[in-house]
Design a protein around this nucleic acid. Structure first.
Lengths: 320, 320
DNA sequence: AACTTCCCTGACGGTAACTGTCAGGGAAGT
DNA sequence: ACTTCCCTGACAGTTACCGTCAGGGAAGTT
C-alpha cells in the first residue's frame, strides 16, 4: 500500500469522529506502530489539528470534523470491481440494484485516459451466462432482510414437486450460494431441526414479526456440506473404487462435485476413491453412465455387476 | 517540504475547481517542474480523475463530477461490492490482488456504525466454493495482459491429454469464463483459424513481442456458443424429442446447459425439444442415462432404439 | 505504590524512492 | 514559425523511509 493511501486512510479514520489508538491504526492498516506515529506527526506538522491523549482511554481525535479525505481507486482496482460485479450478476445476486448504483458511481469518477485504460482491461474478459431455465430465485431480497434482521419467515416449500398446503415457519440463519444454486439454511419449526431449502423451490414467502436469536458459532458451510456429502463414519465399511480410463475422462471424474470429495489417489490412467458400499451401489452407477466406454471400473467386482444390473434394468424399462 | 505535503497541496489546489498550470504549481510550492509532472502522474495513477489540457490556455483541472460529489458509498452499495468480490473469488478471478486492494480501501472508509451494518448484511450470505480439483488456472494474469495490450503468446496446449511438442502462436482476443471454467479465444496460427482454449489445459505460455490487431466487432460469446452448440441450419433435419417424467427430473433436464437450449415446450409431465437427428443419436443417449427410470423417451422411436443399443453396448463393455 | 495502557522520541543500518538536470516529443493557440 | 503548454526517459547524487531497539512520561486501575 503506498504511503499516500495510508495517510489518507488515517485521515478518514480520524474524520469519523471516534477516538482511535495508534495500535488500532497499525493493526487495521497492517503497519508498524512506529510508522503510525510518524504519519500522525506528519499530518500534525502539516496542519491537521489532531488531539492526542496518553494513558488509559488515550488515543487520537480531530479538533473538528472538517477534514474530508477523498476515496479513489486506480485503474486495476476499478477494473476488478467492475469484473466482480459481472460475476455477481452471473450468479443471480440479489443485491444487483445496489451493486449497479455503486458501479455507476465508480464509472463517473474517471478521466478519459483512465476510462480508456479501464475499458481496455474490462473488455479482456467476458463472463458468459451459464444457461439455466430456472427463473431468478424470487425471494432472495426478502430472505436477506429476514436473515440480517433476525425475523422468521413463513414459506410454502415445494420439495417433492407436488403442491403442499402446509406453511412452514423458518428462522433463516444464512443464505448460501453453491454450485450455481441458491439455498437458505435455517431452523424449521415444522421439522424442529435445522434444514436447508433451495430458494427456487420456495413457492411463497411471508415475513413475520417473530424475532429469533441467531445461533452463535454456527457454521453454515459445515452444516451444508455435511448434509450434502454423507460423512464416512465407520472405517470398516470403506470400499476401494478403482476407475481406469483416458486422462480427460479421469480428470472430469476427479473434479466431479460429488465424487471428487472421495478421491484418494490419482495417476495418469487410474483414479482411486474411498467410500461406503451403500454410496457405491446407489449413486455411482448412474454417475458413471454418461462416460460411456471412456472409463472402466477395475474394482470392486460388485460394482461392475451392479452396473450391468442397472443397464439391464434400463433396457427393460426403455423397451416397454 | 515533504512529498506528502506537496501531493496533498496539489490535491487541494485542484479541488478548488480552477484550472492551474504545472508552472504555477511549481512556483507556488517551490518545486522543480519535473517533480510537478511526477506528482500529477502519481495522483492520476492512483485514480484521481485529473483532466490535462496541452497548449495555450492549457493546465490541469479535476473532473467536475468528482468535485461536486466525491466518491461515497452507502452501506448497501458497500455490502454489494464486498459480496461481488466473493463471487469473483469463487470463480478464480485473476485480478484478486487488485480486488483485495479495492475492498481494503473500501473497508477503511467506513465508520464504526456503517461497519456494523455492513457486517450484519455481509454475513447474511455465504458463498461455498464448488469442489474442483482443477488447479487454479495458472496463466490468466499473463493472458490478460496479452489480450489487453494486443500481443501474441506462444503456448503448449494439452488438448488430447497427451503431451505435444509443438508450440502454437496464438493472438488472444478475449478471456471467457463459462460454466465454471476459464477459456481464451483467439486466432491460432497453427490452425489458421479462430479457436478457443481451456486455460487449465495450457501447459506453458510465453509472451511474445508480436503485436496483432484485435478484430473489430468480434463477439466472443457468439463465437463461443456457436462452437459449443451446433447451430440448427436446415429446417428439414429437425426432429422432435418428447420426454415424459416427474416434475423434478424434467426441471433438471430443461435446465441442462446443453439440452436446455433446444427446449421448445414444457408442461408439468412432459418436455418437447427440437434438434437435429445427428445430435439426437450421438449426444442425447449419454446425457439421459443418469436419470435412470425417472424419465422416459416418448418420441422419436429411433431414439428409444438408440438408447437400448447404447445400453447393450455398455453391458458388453462392462462385462469384459 | 506498582502495574498497565497509552502517546512519544531518537538512533541505527539497509534500501528504496526521490530529485534536479538534460534532452527530446507532441498538442494547441497566435 | 513561434510560443505556451503537457509530457516522458535516463542518469547520478541524495534524501527519505522503514522496522527494530531502547528509553521516557502521562493517565487510569488495582
Amino acid at each position: 500500500m503506498p504511503k499516500i493511501d495510508n495517510i489518507l486512510a488515517i485521515l478518514w479514520m480520524l474524520s469519523s469522529g471516534e477516538k482511535i489508538t495508534a495500535k488500532q491504526i497499525s493493526e487495521k492498516l497492517e503497519m508498524n506502530i512506529r510508522t503510525v506515529y510518524r504519519y500522525i506527526d506528519t499530518l500534525s506538522t502539516s496542519g491537521v489539528p489532531i488531539i492526542s491523549d496518553t494513558g488509559h482511554n488515550g488515543g487520537y481525535t480531530l479538533l473538528n470534523h472538517f477534514i474530508e479525505a477523498p476515496l479513489f481507486f486506480d485503474f486495476e482496482e476499478q477494473t476488478s470491481l467492475f469484473h466482480a460485479a459481472v460475476f455477481a450478476e452471473e450468479a443471480g445476486y440479489y443485491g444487483g440494484e445496489a451493486l449497479n448504483r455503486a458501479i455507476s458511481k465508480l464509472s463517473k469518477h474517471s478521466n478519459q485516459e483512465q476510462e480508456a485504460k479501464i475499458n481496455q482491461h474490462f473488455n479482456s474478459l467476458e463472463v458468459i451466462s451459464r444457461f439455466s431455465s430456472l427463473s431468478k430465485a424470487g425471494f432472495l431480497n426478502e430472505l436477506e432482510l429476514s436473515v440480517a434482521d433476525g425475523y422468521s419467515v413463513k414459506i410454502h416449500y415445494d420439495k417433492s414437486g407436488e403442491k403442499q398446503l402446509k406453511f412452514r415457519l423458518v428462522d433463516p440463519y444464512r443464505i448460501i450460494y453453491w454450485n450455481n444454486k441458491w439455498y437458505v439454511i435455517g431452523f424449521c419449526h415444522l421439522r424442529n431441526e435445522i434444514r436447508s431449502f433451495r430458494v427456487d423451490r420456495i413457492e411463497s414467502l411471508m415475513p413475520t414479526e417473530n424475532k429469533f436469536e441467531q445461533p452463535e458459532n454456527f457454521s453454515a458451510s459445515d452444516f451444508f456440506m455435511n448434509n450434502l456429502l454423507p460423512t464416512i463414519e465407520d472405517k470398516e465399511e470403506i470400499t476401494t473404487l478403482i476407475i481406469t480410463g483416458g486422462n480427460r475422462a479421469l480428470e472430469d471424474i476427479c473434479g466431479h462435485w460429488f465424487l471428487g470429495h472421495y478421491l484418494h489417489q490419482r495417476s495418469s490412467d487410474q483414479a482411486i476413491f474411498l467410500l461406503e458400499k451403500d454410496i457405491l451401489h446407489t449413486y455411482i452407477p448412474y454417475l458413471l453412465l454418461p462416460y460411456g466406454k471412456s472409463i472402466r471400473v477395475t474394482e470392486p467386482i460388485s460394482l461392475k455387476e451392479r452396473l450391468v444390473e442397472v443397464l439391464s434394468e434400463l433396457i427393460n424399462f426403455h423397451q416397454n
